[in-house]
Design a protein around this nucleic acid. Structure first.
Lengths: 344, 344
DNA sequence: TTGAAAGCGCTAACAG
DNA sequence: CTGTTAGCGCTTTCAA
């Protein structure tokens, strides 16, 4: 039953030409119209599909693009992935997906697997630092960072050039503007004790948070969770309990936002009366939430798409990355600073 | 700079053995302890990583498992994917992801790409029918269906054996029980006009819906949307407007549920007072919604994990599939049938 | 324009 | 137990 696959040799024989000719024709090389037609015809008739296996070995690389994300379950990354898939599909490239769980070791491991597979184009939301990426880069990987860059420095042009990673193009949302806008909005409403609920790899945002808030910053109001839902919830609940005087929170991601809503509800904090909440990333449920969440929308899908474009165009110009705009979408989770829950 | 990768030959030379020996040692074949140790040692020192390219060509197949989903953006499928990734990782297998958009053509195209890549193990939430899958199966693909089977018949043992697809193992949630439980719950609350808001590939659920409701079914209350959010919203809004007499809805997926909530809100239908809602699939935001949604939880992640196990064990026994339990989680979106919105 | 031939890195016979 | 050898299917010089 299971007949051997048709190979280029079969086609060559059937068409009465050499394999080289078939190869040329099929990859758009030069050939006389007559020959070309005949080959194409035979190939179609035999239902020939060139095996990527042979080609890959020969080329010493398997096309395809690797995609390394912290967590495909996070709606933001899922949308990012969707963008990558969209672009990859139109380029006919398969996408190999890996979830790092924001764990350096796992990331390194996954990079290893990709390298082993001959994948040499990778889009990553990096969690490891130079130690992880330098070797990969040296091994010839073509990398584009998405959403985060490896230094966390994002677009900030600065002297602490971090070796090779600094030359990796990155497609980022304009975190800086996002944080500023949110903070302006919140302070405009009268809030003075604003907390930041962050996740892994948000150094950039934090820096902007601190800078923007200036004298108002309170380091105790800055809490970083690990990637998981549990960790996010623990962080949020802990923060709210420890500092009943805070009146507003900026959540650095939809998982964190979700946790904040849950924790607030659990502690009987009414949003926005007792607590104003702005969440990074607009997700469909933000609108279904009670109250609907005010968010900083990020073009997750675009980020993925653009990153894929960049990684596919590799070799061209375009050394530098892309900065995509964010947008504050005001819904119902913020209000004027009310009476503090625990006055003074 | 970019030095040639170390190959098996390099290792062989450096260790003073033949390439075959290296190959054997590295793949756990027989070898004298002394040789083995030496080879392993040299391999480690040279930082040798066997190239999957060579192996794949030789084996005429590239390990790795293909994963075909309708939409990675849908939380259910994202969790399913996560399950697959988890299992694949522990098996050291890369996962190639493709989004079909519930479009037969795209699905076929993606299958083609996978075949071309030499991927011969695939987990799919199928949207195409036999026309799509038969050829793939004939081409030697090892397939495991997840969440849906190709006939839509699911577990139902019956005579209309659909050729080769019928032999494809499937990992499914117990839709039948889920629908029944939900319907019992709803009718127990007094509801008589219960609508079904479905998506692609839900023949199985629909059948159970009809069978369970018996004389109460009203074909006009059964609406099928395509996969997208827009389509889901249109379907929900249309349904609610057309039939103001319905008092309860069963949404066949989280996208549909989301749409139902949105549409209800838009039409000023209060949940659960005017409209009771049960949604298939428990998502984190179900709890954040106002009111919190009553759902039929499905073990999305397990489905993925089990499917991956099956597809990796292929060749063993285990021809048949797996049926995973669902669970009704009662929250706040259902109430007793109130006064119909439009009496009579 | 075309064909012959040389591998890409690896595994699997088959001898030794 | 180990080395030699023959390809897997394809691309790519290199001549013709």
């Amino acid at each position: 039953m299971k007949t051997r696959r048709t190979t280029i040799k079969d086609v060559a024989e059937a068409a009465g030409v050499g394999v080289a000719t078939v190869s040329r024709v099929l990859s758009g090389g030069s050939a006389s119209p007559r020959t070309a037609e005949r080959v194409l015809d035979v190939a179609a008739r035999l239902d020939y599909r060139p095996s990527a296996l042979g080609r890959n070995l020969r080329r010493r690389r398997s096309g395809g693009i690797g995609l390394l994300l912290p967590d495909i379950t996070d709606s933001f990354y899922a949308r990012l992935a969707d963008g990558v898939l969209g672009c990859a599909r139109s380029a006919g490239e398969p996408v190999v997906l890996g979830a790092t769980g924001d764990d350096e070791e796992r990331e390194a491991e996954l990079i290893g697997t990709l390298l082993e597979q001959g994948v040499e184009r990778v889009i990553a939301v990096p969690c490891g630092g130079g130690e992880t990426w330098e070797p990969a880069l040296r091994a010839g990987l073509i990398v584009v960072f998405a959403h985060r860059s490896v230094t966390g420095r994002a677009d900030a042009p600065g002297p602490p050039a971090v070796s090779a990673c600094a030359t990796v193009p990155a497609v980022l949302a304009d975190d800086r503007a996002g944080v500023r806008t949110a903070l302006d909005y919140l302070t405009g409403l009268g809030h003075r004790r604003v907390a930041y609920l962050g996740g892994p790899g948000q150094e950039q945002r934090l820096a902007v948070f601190r800078r923007t808030l200036g004298p108002l910053v309170d380091e105790e109001l800055i809490v970083l969770a690990r990637g998981s839902r549990d960790s996010a919830y623990a962080a949020a609940a802990g923060l709210f309990q420890r500092r009943p005087d805070l009146t507003a929170v900026l959540a650095g991601g939809n998982l964190l936002g979700e946790a904040a809503v849950l924790a607030a509800r659990e502690l009987d904090l009414r949003v926005p009366r007792d607590l104003s909440l702005v969440m990074f990333d607009d997700v469909p449920w933000a609108e279904l939430c009670a109250p609907p969440l005010t968010v900083i929308a990020q073009p997750a899908q675009d980020i993925g798409y653009r990153a894929a474009e960049l990684v596919l165009r590799a070799g061209d110009q375009r050394p530098r990355g892309v900065l995509l705009p964010t947008e504050l979408i005001v819904r119902g989770s913020c209000g004027p600073r009310g009476p503090s829950r625990s006055p003074r």
